[in-house]
Write a protein that binds this DNA or RNA. Structure first.
Length: 422
RNA sequence: GCGGUUGUGGCGAAGUGGUUAACGCACCGGAUUGUGAUUCCGGCACUCGUGGGUUCAAUUCCCAUCAGCCGCCCCA
């Protein structure tokens, strides 16, 4: 019986994990500049939190949650996204009372959705997300969008398309909702089963349906932009103005509807063009959720955020052939010959490492030639050769791999010598 | 949940109803008793995802199952 990795998950092996570390570091640096602070919440929560927070008309809640009962009979769910958890923590820790508002948080961590795996879609995947709670200033919307665009830009991605829309405030949404129902209801039987469900629960999402995309009623459906009240219109205009001021290019797409129920006013997505993506074109999605904190039991608090997938980012980097500036290789590799030299290698390696050098040596009894090959493979800058001859004079032979030059250095000075060469 | 496609050594990849499963790369050893290239020589799959069936005989045919990849739905 062989064990296998669970479906839709992956091991991230060293070659890849270096990229992950680089990207995670970039996230921390970027968020620090924008003054967003990291929050770490559990990977599971009460099931009810997601049902209420994400919205029970969503696919996520209806068919994609990893839900289980613990031994105490509590229903728990592996988090399918990060916003609900963050908002729960905001409420539970009374962050609305913190001195600095809005509260600006970010997170990086695994999310879980039970889906058929395919390109750009895993059952466990990692999201980087940002949430700003406590301000209804359109400048925050622009800041959050700007942060996400900066992230991709600083990693070197191009051909990104930022799409924004406004779903309006409660009043605008309601008016639009009624208009949509009025528009589709007489002929709803011509639509797919999903859309017939959507008519009552969330008619907005009919516009998002790929199956019925070509139906004539789609093209003539009332646009949300025509139903925005004055507040929502002004708000959306300001967001656009700020984006333009920041030299961030975007398109307004009135059919952009985010799949989660909690969004209102600003919604946005970052898409990528080009071959190699199959069905996946959305790298990042986000929007404003002014009612969510209240829904989850907190005081009325506006909020906005986004989430993006590191896996999809890596795909994008791959497709655009962008190599991250990753440092690799050892400062030195110790090659020993003979029992005596082998015997002093633990002490020697430990001493070098204690002084901050990245060094390694042989542990499987390789012949000298094989040790040299290993040093070469592992991109050691120097090889330290230690045999009976050197040991007899308390020296060590050091060879610079790039030039082939070598010289003897007193054994007890070798660490300083290498450091002086860096 | 639905559909397509694939599943042979660490990786890539041939192959056939029948005594020993090509080849390439990588790796290990030797030629070269203390030096990373190249070359040459040698080594490296009781086994062809798993289970069952057909057959005198199956990696090769059939069924099931699992998994990967891709698409639909939906999303990050």
């Amino acid at each position: 019986m062989n064990y296998r990795i669970p479906r839709g998950t992956q091991d991230i092996l060293p070659e890849q994990s270096r990229k992950w570390q680089f990207i995670e570091q970039k996230i921390h640096d970027l968020c620090n500049r924008y003054n967003y602070k990291e929050i770490r919440t559990p990977v599971f929560e009460q099931t009810e939190l997601f049902a209420r927070g994400v919205g029970d008309t969503t696919d996520i809640v209806q068919k994609e949650m990893y839900t289980f009962d613990d031994r105490g009979g509590r229903s728990l769910t592996l988090r399918p996204e990060g916003t609900a958890s963050t908002v729960r923590s905001f409420v539970e820790n009374k962050m609305h009372g913190w001195a600095d508002q809005p509260v600006k948080l970010y997170y990086v961590g695994p999310m879980f959705r039970y889906e058929r795996p395919q390109s750009g879609r895993m059952r466990q995947f990692v999201q980087f997300g940002v949430e700003a709670m406590g301000s209804a200033d359109p400048a925050v919307d622009a800041e959050v969008i700007g942060l996400s665009m900066d992230f991709y830009r600083e990693l070197g991605l191009s051909n990104l398309k930022l799409v924004v829309n406004s779903l309006g405030d409660k009043e605008s949404r309601n008016n639009h909702r009624n208009a949509l129902i009025e528009h589709f209801e007489p002929r709803i039987s011509e639509f797919c089963a999903d859309c017939q469900q959507r008519l009552e629960k969330n008619p907005l999402r009919i516009l998002d349906c790929k199956q019925d995309n070509d139906h004539e009623l789609m093209a003539t459906a009332p646009s949300i932009l025509d139903y925005l009240n004055e507040d929502s219109t002004d708000y959306f205009k300001l967001v656009q103005q700020y984006l333009a001021d920041m030299d961030i290019r975007f398109e307004v797409d009135p059919t952009l509807v985010r799949g989660l129920d909690y969004y209102n006013n600003t919604a946005f997505e970052i898409m990528i063009d080009g071959e190699g993506f199959g069905a996946i074109t959305t790298l990042c999605g986000g929007g404003r959720y002014n009612g969510l904190v209240e829904d989850i039991g907190g005081p009325t608090t506006p909020g906005i955020g986004f989430a993006l997938s590191i896996e999809r980012l890596l795909m994008a980097l791959e497709v655009q052939e962008i190599s991250l500036p990753i440092e690799e290789g050892l400062d030195a590799y110790l090659v020993t010959m003979g029992e005596q030299a082998k015997a002093v290698s633990p002490k020697l390696l430990h001493g070098l490492r204690s002084k901050g050098l990245a060094v390694d040596g042989d542990y499987i009894g390789k012949k000298m030639k094989a040790q040299m090959k290993a040093a070469d493979r592992q991109k050691a800058e120097f090889v330290l050769l230690l045999g009976d001859d050197e040991l007899a004079e308390d020296n060590i032979m050091v060879k610079e791999m790039a030039t082939g030059e070598q010289k003897q250095v007193p054994l007890k000075e070798i660490a300083e010598w290498i450091i002086s060469q860096r």
